[in-house]
Design a protein around this nucleic acid. Structure first.
Length: 515
RNA sequence: GGGCCGCUAGCUCAACUGGCAGAGCAGCUGACUCUUAAUCAGCAGGUUACAGGUUCGAUUCCUGUGCGGCUCACCA
């Protein structure tokens, strides 16, 4: 009789408040108590951290079995209700949860006493027949119980869960325990990416891997991270896009390539921006912009349907309808809609007062393209709600896109817009090496004038173009941005396992480490 | 970077106009063999984010710092 034999021990094992090192107070007390339980388990011959739990069945599957069937399940205890000689518990694994019923008269006195050493949060394995309680809850009548992992720290509160947004991002593991929906989004992401690959593979696109460390980062308007390569004693940049490497592959003779790769942008945090993100880019030789439009519609519709089972997805109080064909909006038309005819403002100087009138803070040295972009983002982009193609952008906005033969001031480009945000960008790639050089030189000039996001001149890339790149269309989209809208997530951080956070408040750094 | 808001026990939250920092959950002890946020009795648990200031007295008022959220500007 364990209960009779050990009351004295239990008292002596109670965590006494040790004056030293008790700063965590309650938490320290709980932890100390659990370490004592751990020791008691070992005294009783129960190993608290055994290896594996063979032949277990996932709870979701066990729940499908007939009443009376013997099931063998494992998971984390999330609820614990003791009623004298009978105990109810809730066991959860990744597939779901199921109630356990543990009875003294079934388990026997000794084994029932071991239950006192268990806490909510511990992992256990349980085996026994299924039955339904009076109140209709599917339950395992536990015959065999195995401790799988003893936990030392308590879980967040069972009813309210973890709501403090700071703790939720800093201790994401706790957020996942508390909120299975958060976990579900990551599972959706995996499924979505799998369907994306399957679609592109099925269209004879070759998946490639290109370097993340570059000497000249390019292909996007973004400020890069810098790092240092010791062996060469040289600074490298982390890539900001996949674009230029892929075009060099097209020069090399590849005709359809794609990559889903991590890129890094040294920019601020916001609801819809991360510092590292997975970009899907693909490049397709001999296709034109119209073919790209049809292809992109089909890609989105197929993958969305396969992943979510529908083409109508809610975002906030909107419903986004991805059924093709999508409408097109003309960049210049939209500007005329807010009373600006871009043809009348051919220079940055003439456009600057227009931007200032709208309350935009226009730094020095910004080019015409950047000013147009600022006005667009303030006044036009938020109004583009339903999935659609935005087309006919000014050339100033698109240093890597081919000009429209009908109007050299515009380019052959499409942006996929939804919910007031850009979720996809493609164009007929510029393959005129001399035009490309002069546009890089223009970007270089803007860069020197203070635009830190203007493109750097990439001599290797220019040389590659001189060997000839066939007519090619390319497309890029951030997986996270895309999923944020598809999963109705208020923040892009919700679709990432571990979003970046500032270092926690420094607990008085040891000296010498400062600077 | 700017503006606004927040930070109190492990978690979720109270504390009036400046007057002994409280409750629920979790924890510990005990009761209870069909519970559903189980219930009941008892116990314990705090550098009120941090540093200053005002005051007889600060969780509360003031200043600064840190971290976070929202938002504006900029980037997918």
């Amino acid at each position: 009789m364990l209960s009779a034999a050990h009351p004295g021990d239990k008292m002596s094992l109670m965590p006494r408040k040790t004056s030293k090192e008790s700063s965590g107070s309650r938490l320290a007390e709980v932890r100390a108590s659990r370490i004592e339980k751990l020791a008691r388990m070992r005294e009783l011959g129960v190993e608290p951290y055994p290896n594996g739990f063979p032949d277990r069945e996932v709870i979701g599957a066990a729940r499908e079995r007939a009443e009376g069937a013997n099931v063998r399940v494992a998971g984390r205890l999330v609820l614990w209700r003791r009623h004298g000689g009978a105990t109810f518990a809730m066991l959860r694994d990744q597939s779901g949860q199921i109630q356990l019923h543990l009875r003294r008269d079934i388990l026997g006195e000794d084994r029932y006493e071991v239950l006192k050493l268990l806490d909510v949060g511990d992992f256990i394995g349980a085996e026994g027949p299924l039955f339904t309680t009076r109140t209709g809850e599917l339950t395992v009548e536990v015959r065999q119980l195995t401790v799988l992992t003893k936990t030392l720290l308590p879980l967040p509160e069972k009813w309210h869960g973890l709501t403090d947004p700071e703790t939720r991002v800093r201790k994401r593991h706790l957020a996942f325990i508390t909120d299975p929906d958060a976990m579900g989004i990551l599972a959706k992401r995996a499924e979505f990416v799998r369907h994306l690959r399957a679609f592109l593979d099925g269209e004879q696109f070759l998946e490639v891997a290109t370097p993340a460390l570059e000497r000249i980062p390019g292909g996007a308007d973004a400020e890069p991270f810098v790092t240092h390569y010791n062996a060469l004693d040289t600074d490298f940049y982390l890539r900001i896009s996949l674009e230029l490497a892929h075009k060099r592959l097209i020069v090399g003779g590849f005709e359809r390539v794609y990559e889903i790769g991590r890129v890094f942008r040294n920019e601020g945090l916001s609801r819809e921006h991360l510092q590292e993100l997975d970009l899907l880019e693909f490049y397709w030789a001999y296709a034109d912009l119209d073919a790209l439009k049809r292809f992109v519609e089909r890609l989105y519709a197929t993958v969305i349907e396969e992943t979510f089972g529908t083409l109508q997805l809610p975002y906030g109080d909107q419903v986004l309808d991805f059924a093709p064909p999508w409408p097109e909006s003309d960049f210049g038309e939209l500007f005329r809609g807010i009373g600006i005819d871009l043809d009348e403002y051919s220079t940055a100087e003439s456009l600057r007062p227009v931007a200032e009138e709208r309350g935009l803070t226009v730094g020095p040295g910004l080019g015409r393209g950047r000013l147009i972009d600022m006005i667009y983002k303030q006044a036009i982009r938020p109004t583009l709600i339903q999935p659609q193609f935005l087309v006919n952008h000014p050339v100033d906005l698109s240093p890597l896109a081919k000009r429209d033969p009908a109007d050299p001031g515009r380019v052959q480009r499409l942006q996929v817009m939804m919910a007031g945000s850009e979720v996809g960008n493609g164009y007929a790639e510029l393959n005129d090496p001399l035009d490309q050089r002069s546009r890089f030189e223009e970007q270089q000039r803007l860069r020197e004038a203070g635009d830190r996001e203007a493109h750097m001149l990439d001599e290797e890339f220019l040389e590659a173009l001189e060997y000839g790149m066939p007519p090619t269309v390319g497309f890029g989209v951030s997986i996270e941005r895309w999923l944020m809208y598809l999963t109705d997530s208020p923040s892009i951080r919700d679709v990432v396992a571990f979003p970046a956070t500032r270092p926690p408040a420094a607990p008085a750094a040891p000296d010498g480490e400062a600077e």
